[in-house]
């Protein structure tokens, strides 16, 4: 999907082109619609949503739903808003992303530049681990977290995410380093550089793009995770997604749609920002994760 890719040689007549533009714009509306609905309705008072329609702009603009979602809305039994859970998510994401990226880089380095008998089997097993349905590990994981004494903690969640991220990060770095010239590693060996010196001085400085891709991929996946959060967190260590779901689906009291929408945007904001800032890398990660081994 690089911008430099050549355009197609197919030529189209101008009437067709107008129709193509119309279709494309129509689809753009379809994809933007839910975001638009969330945005406009998050700044309306509740009455206006109930009596008006969801697509119209707010007549009375208010940021109260945002404040409420952030700091006072009822999550479970506590009127804390989403703020503490947002922090939980950050505390969960940062160490997990850092650890899995670092390990992935080292693994990719070993698997491509220091090959040994059986390395392909090791890689295949790591690769397959990317695709397992996590339901299959929920029961033993819950038990192990209990044994380690980190059940229901943010650290525990972080560990879980780091472990199940290794497969993907290793895949990313292995594919990237596969294309990295082995002669450079050999030259550095002759220059007397050690295993870690070669990694740090020769490979790492050239790894910028793949680090960005991996960090974005891991960040997005871990931030957006729901299953591990809902399975392993206690009510104080819930990540943002689980807290949002609790807010939206709690059956008590009035349904504050505007607060729900504001909360949903808050939960989406970090990954959306990452996407807007570095969409190119985001797409590259998606592709790398989707296709090939």
């Amino acid at each position: 999907m690089s911008a430099a890719a050549p355009d197609t040689a197919v030529r189209t007549a101008s009437l067709t082109r107008i129709l193509i533009y119309c279709a494309l714009i129509l689809f753009a509306f379809y994809y933007l619609l839910p975001l638009y609905v969330m945005l406009v309705n998050s700044v309306k008072p509740l009455d206006e949503i109930r009596q008006g329609d969801m697509l119209s702009l707010p007549q009375q603009f208010t940021l109260d739903p945002w404040f409420s979602a952030w700091s006072t809305a009822q999550i479970g039994v506590q009127p804390t808003g989403l703020k503490p859970y947002f922090l939980n998510s950050i505390l969960m994401v940062v160490p997990a992303v850092a650890a899995s990226t670092l390990l992935g880089a080292l693994n990719g380095y070993v698997l491509t530049k220091w090959r040994f008998p059986g390395d392909n089997l090791v890689f295949t097993l790591m690769l397959l681990s990317c695709f397992i349905p996590f339901q299959i590990v929920l029961i033993p994981m819950a038990k192990v977290l209990g044994l380690l004494g980190i059940a229901g903690t943010t650290w525990g969640l972080s560990l879980v995410h780091a472990i199940y991220g290794i497969g993907f990060t290793t895949l990313f770095f292995r594919n990237y380093y596969e294309a990295f010239p082995t002669e450079l590693v050999r030259a550095a060996m002759i220059d007397g550089a050690s295993f870690f010196q070669i990694f740090r001085r020769i490979l790492l400085p050239s790894s910028g793009p793949i680090i960005v891709v991996t960090v974005i991929w891991q960040f997005t996946n871990i931030w957006n995770d729901f299953l591990f959060g809902v399975s392993f967190a206690d009510s104080y260590s819930l990540p943002m997604t689980v807290a949002l779901n609790n807010l939206v689906s709690s059956s008590t009291g009035v349904k504050e749609y505007n607060v729900h929408f504001a909360g949903a945007i808050l939960a989406a904001l970090p990954t959306l920002i990452v996407y807007v800032v570095s969409g190119r890398y985001f797409v590259r990660g998606l592709m790398a994760g989707a296709v090939k081994g």
């Binding site: 010239p181 002669e183 450079l184 050999r186 002759i190 220059d191 007397g192 550089a193």
Partner: peptide, 16 residues
Amino acid sequence: PSERDIAMVFQSYALY
């Protein structure tokens, strides 16, 4: 390799 007192010029030059 670094202890053999050799130097090598590679096909791709292998410049860092």
